[in-house]
Simulated scan of single mutants.
Amino acid sequence: MATTIEETKAYIGMWVTADGYIRHELLPGNRYDEARGNRKSAYQGSYNVTGNHIDYKDDTGFTADGEFREGILYHAGMVLYKEEN
């Protein structure tokens, strides 16, 4: 049986678009902080991972979702790659 990203918690960390413009930091404790360009903390909120699916809810109430596939996060038309430490 395949292990989900939820089980390994491999989703925690920084996820970045190829051009570096969008940066999602998925924090332990189910909070996230998104930067856009030079705008740090452009959006903040909570997230929940179930299997390889992620649901976001920002602090204004806006919701979105995404999916982890083969080490890549697909979210709202964006493709994000995990930044290595």
Rank of each mutant, 00 (worst) to 15 (best):
V79A: 04
L27C: 10
T60W: 01
K40R: 11
G51Q: 10
A64P: 03
R31N: 14
G37L: 03
H53D: 14
F62M: 06
T17C: 05
R31Q: 13
N38T: 09
Q44S: 00
L27H: 09
T3M: 14
Y56I: 13
D55H: 10
F68T: 03
R36I: 12
T3I: 07
I12F: 12
A64N: 09
G77A: 09
H24K: 15
T60E: 11
W15P: 13
V49C: 08
E25W: 11
Q44H: 00
Y32P: 11
G71D: 12
Y81G: 05
H75S: 10
S46C: 01
V49R: 09
A64V: 00
R36F: 11
T50Y: 04
E7F: 00
H53R: 15
G71V: 03
H24M: 12
Y47R: 02
D59Q: 06
A35H: 08
H53N: 14
E6M: 02
E83A: 14
G45M: 09
R23H: 08
T63R: 12
N85K: 08
I5G: 02
P28N: 14
Y81S: 05
K9L: 08
G20L: 08
N85E: 10
T63G: 09
P28R: 07
E7G: 01
M78R: 15
E70V: 04
K40T: 15
H53S: 09
T4R: 08
H75P: 04
E34H: 04
R36N: 03
H24R: 12
F62E: 11
Y81N: 07
G61A: 11
D55Q: 11
E67D: 11
Y43W: 07
E70S: 12
T63V: 08
E25Q: 13
H75T: 12
R36E: 15
Y11C: 05
M14P: 02
A18E: 14
T63P: 01
G61K: 12
A18D: 14
N52M: 05
G29C: 08
D55K: 10
M14Y: 07
Y21L: 11
N30P: 01
N38W: 06
K40P: 07
L26I: 06
M1W: 08
F68P: 11
G45L: 10
A42E: 10
G51I: 10
A76K: 11
E7H: 03
I54L: 07
R23T: 10
K57V: 15
I22W: 08
A64L: 01
K40Q: 14
I5S: 06
G61I: 05
G61F: 05
Y21I: 13
M78S: 13
G51M: 09
A35Y: 02
M78C: 08
L26N: 12
G71Q: 13
Q44G: 00
Y74Q: 10
G29H: 13
E34C: 12
I22A: 10
R36C: 08
L27P: 03
N38M: 05
G71H: 14
E70I: 03
V49N: 05
N48P: 01
I54N: 09
T60I: 02
D59T: 06
E70G: 01
A76R: 05
N52L: 07
G61M: 12
D65I: 04
I12C: 08
L73D: 09
Q44Y: 01
Y11G: 07
T3F: 04
T4N: 00
G71S: 15
V16K: 11
D65L: 02
D59H: 00
G13Q: 15
A64K: 03
G71K: 15
E84S: 09
P28I: 07
